[in-house]
């Protein structure tokens, strides 16, 4: 591993983490506000280390959803990591197996985006990815812990749990740049509004995500047909 490349990765990912701090704090806060202790919340964050699926897990566990629904929903949200794993595989394979396992555990959207961008001009993407991932992990876990500790002190009337959908919203907006993505997001959001409160065993979220994904695929086929 090249130390300089690791530092470069950490330096260049730092500006992207401005969003990760409120997201981590909100997730920690949401977790304790949903009835989990600081220790339970932190263990969840250490084991899973994936923001969106942590939120879904907390949300479902706190409403006593069956455990297979909780697992299936989290798995569906984290399926995207398969794509990331396949994409970074060519330049990470030179690292030792132990390091590769750690890099897999610490893989995030942020580190993936910054490492795979076209304008990368460094010498060793594996070290760059590792440096970026370590910083994301540290920032996320400390923000999460701060949020979960101070969440108990902040009065409910502040409605700070609302900061969580605001962060999701912020990450969703830049993705609305193609017609297919707009269709997928609109269908998923509408389905969530319809299904989440009404479908049994808290299966609304998983159904909504699948509706959105299939609508996106259908839209892609439809728009591509129009272009040919």
């Amino acid at each position: 591993m090249h130390k300089k490349e690791m530092i470069l990765g950490a330096k260049q990912i730092a500006p992207l983490l401005i969003g990760a701090i409120p997201f981590g704090m909100s997730t920690g806060l949401y977790s304790v506000e949903s009835g989990f202790s600081v220790f339970e919340s932190f263990m969840m964050s250490i084991f899973i280390f994936a923001g969106a699926s942590q939120v879904a897990t907390v949300s479902l566990l706190s409403t006593d959803a069956p455990f297979w629904i909780v697992i299936a929903t989290a798995a569906l949200i984290n399926l995207r990591f398969l794509i990331y794993s396949a994409t970074v595989s060519p330049f990470i394979h030179k690292a030792s197996r132990g390091l590769r396992t750690f890099m897999a555990y610490a893989m995030t959207d942020h580190a993936f985006i910054i490492t795979t961008r076209e304008k990368y001009t460094g010498q060793d993407r594996a070290s760059y990815f590792l440096g970026a991932s370590i910083l994301v992990w540290l920032v996320w876990q400390s923000s999460f812990l701060l949020g979960s500790i101070f969440g108990k002190i902040i009065p409910d009337s502040w409605s700070l749990e609302f900061s969580l959908p605001l962060v999701f919203l912020f990450f969703t907006v830049p993705l609305l740049k193609s017609k297919e993505n707009i269709v997928a997001a609109s269908v998923a959001a509408t389905s969530a509004i319809i299904f989440v409160p009404f479908l049994p065993i808290q299966s609304g979220l998983i159904v909504s995500i699948l509706c959105g994904a299939f609508a996106g695929i259908a839209a892609k086929k439809f728009f591509n047909k129009g272009r040919t």
Binding site: F168, T172, A185, V187, A188, A192, I193, C211, G216
Partner: peptide
């Protein structure tokens, strides 16, 4: 995108 949109809308 579907996961983000569904979570945002529900919350």
């Amino acid at each position: 995108i579907s996961a983000m949109a569904a979570l945002t809308a529900a919350h």
